[in-house]
Design a protein around this nucleic acid. Structure first.
Lengths: 131, 131
DNA sequence: ACCTGTGTATTAGCTATCTAATACACTAAG
DNA sequence: CTTAGTGTATTAGATAGCTAATACACAGGT
């Protein structure tokens, strides 16, 4: 699926939440597809099942996942379409954080943009490879 | 100086550390200039003095700041030049995190790059304005 | 000398996170 | 029915980070 980065200060459950969202956005997880069970994903990521459960619950609340109790968890048929304002807001916050660190380490704007482009395409490619 | 973002999962001492580095990179803090005292900056940021002290100590260990005990803290005369490999490594990690969230929220590469450009220039402008 | 402002250190308590170990209710398959 | 596999809930413990309060040693100005 994806990997957990212990060096990332973001909580693990948030990393899982974002990882699932990313897989769906990339098309690796199609609507209706089943998602790994809480225990399986926990074992895969070397993480506690409770942590995975927390991420799944948040995704279910957001309408991204559909929980069939006692049966399993699936990708919701209709993915919620976030308002453009919300999406841009989240992206904007992330951009500010990234730009701040880029400036702090003394990188020019061009270098910062280059790194984003290669990183973006590398993430996409990485998932294409596994498919 | 700068602001602390409580929503950022990064520890406050790390935000302070990066904030100081950013001010130096922007030229707002020249070598030899005095930095706000631990207590003053703590009061300014509405944060505990211990947290500021931790950031200052890390910056002093890294050669970014020079501590004159009992007198004050100053920007080091010779700023350490991080190896290009180190700087690129830090930037690369940040770029991967940013690209991941951009993909997760369903943004195209072009939009992600645009947000970085505006954010970068906005941070720079914001500091130019205060100067 | 005295006092104020430095950085530094220590101790305690709080909150969030993660882990671990169970336990429960539900569904599907044998 | 029994069993295995779901999601879910609870409890306890460990750790990291932040806060608060206090104290110490040093430098500089009065």
């Amino acid at each position: 699926m994806f990997a957990i980065n212990p060096a990332d200060p973001a909580p693990i459950w948030r990393q899982i939440e974002e990882g699932v969202r990313r897989l769906i956005a990339l098309g690796a997880l199609q609507p209706g597809a089943s998602v790994p069970s809480v225990r399986d994903l926990a074992k895969d990521l070397r993480v506690n099942p409770n942590t995975v459960a927390r991420a799944y619950q948040r995704l279910a609340e957001g309408g991204v996942l559909l929980v069939k109790r006692g049966e399993g968890t699936y990708v919701a048929d209709e993915q919620p379409q976030p308002k453009k304002a919300q999406r841009n807001g989240a992206l904007r916050d992330a951009a500010v954080r990234y730009a701040s660190t880029a400036i702090a380490v003394g990188s020019a704007l061009e270098d910062a943009v280059d790194e984003v482009e290669t990183a973006y395409q590398r993430v996409v490619r990485e998932h294409r490879r596994k498919a």
